[in-house]
């Protein structure tokens, strides 16, 4: 006898639902697709817990079915002690020992790891590369790390609580006002990973993302980033550089090598080389740069950057061309 339609539908819906949920589980932001030792340990624990729970669940169901079918009542004392005390004690102890052993691999303190300080701000991330505690490079939102090496992240905030999370690389850690939290992450596979603020922090919390790119050529990247901004080459770029100062952008943004030295917004010295703008919100190209400058408040309402909606068309393009040239 085939099951009634409604239960068949329910079953199909459950299967499809579970499948759809799992489908989102690889790609640049996926705890189930680990790319480093911490994430690997976390996902191993998750799968073992899941498997263990599934087995226990099945055993319980079988026991229930068996009890329902049994003709006469049984003397159950021995069974209750075995199933209700001994079994959970053994299983939970085993899982606890396993969990503690595996998680001791997480956050192992390396001796001399590269240190990056990330400061959460509504709604973007300031990124400082530190040497002996002093910043040697300030950038934003798009973090670059060496592949296969542990990196110590020193996490703090300038305003409210944020949470720093790169699911493909490891667990999340809160950024708490007045405190400094530390975590160590390592990317074993070169590539770009996506992170996301994981603690509600105001209107644009959902648009507070970032990227972590793991590269083989970290030293070259760092050296290039430490150089001051490129000089404008074309007339359009030169006009953009002048407009940047005339419009007061320098009150909030720094471009090293120019008079712009503001610190309210992201450092733009090498903004043209970053994959995203506005904290992972938009891809980075002249169009999105111009659109952001003209209408930041429509894209990210409440962000601490005004819309510059009184610029003429060619002025807007000049600013975008200049910023795009700052690789």
């Amino acid at each position: 006898m085939s099951p009634p339609i409604s239960s068949r539908c329910a079953r199909a819906a459950a299967v499809v639902g579970a499948a759809a949920a799992l489908a989102a589980c690889d790609g640049p932001q996926a705890a189930l697709d680990p790319a480093g030792p911490d994430a690997e340990a976390i996902s191993t624990i998750a799968w073992v817990m899941f498997g263990g729970a599934a087995i226990v669940f099945i055993v319980v169901l079988v026991a229930v079915a068996w009890a329902l079918r049994a003709r006469r009542a049984r003397e159950g004392r021995g069974l209750i002690i075995a199933g209700g005390v001994v079994f959970p004690l053994v299983v939970l102890t085993a899982l606890l020992v396993f969990g503690l052993t595996v998680s001791s691999r997480i956050n192992a303190e390396p001796d001399d790891a590269l240190t990056i300080r990330v400061t959460g701000k509504q709604w973007w991330w300031q990124v400082d590369y530190l040497d002996a505690g002093e910043p040697v490079l300030t950038t934003a939102n798009d973090i670059v790390v060496p592949v296969g090496a542990p990196v110590r992240f020193v996490l703090t905030t300038d305003d409210v609580i944020h949470s720093f999370w790169v699911p493909s690389l490891g667990g999340k850690l809160d950024m708490i006002p007045g405190r400094i939290n530390e975590t160590v992450l390592q990317a074993d596979v070169a590539g770009a990973y996506r992170g996301q603020c994981a603690e509600f922090c105001g209107d644009q919390h959902a648009l507070m993302a970032f990227t972590v790119a793991a590269t083989d050529d970290f030293a070259a990247w760092l050296a290039a980033q430490q150089r001051p901004a490129a000089e404008p080459v074309t007339d359009l770029e030169a006009r953009g550089a002048a407009l940047f100062l005339e419009n007061g952008c320098g009150a909030c943004h720094t471009i090293r090598g120019t008079d712009a030295d503001g610190t309210i917004g992201p450092d733009l010295t090498h903004v043209g080389g970053r994959p995203t703008i506005a904290a992972g919100t938009l891809p980075n190209n002249q169009g999105t740069l111009a659109g952001w400058i003209a209408d930041a408040q429509a894209i990210k309402p409440g962000a601490r950057m005004p819309s510059f909606d009184r610029l003429a068309g060619p002025e807007l393009r000049a600013l975008a061309a200049y910023l795009a040239s700052l690789e």
């Binding site: 190209n285 002249q286 111009a290 003429a312 068309g313 060619p314 807007l316 393009r317 975008a320």
Partner: peptide
């Protein structure tokens, strides 16, 4: 777009 209408605000797109 700017190669066609120089005064436009629409930048060249990648």
């Amino acid at each position: 777009a700017p190669s066609l209408v120089p005064e436009t605000a629409m930048p060249p797109m990648p």
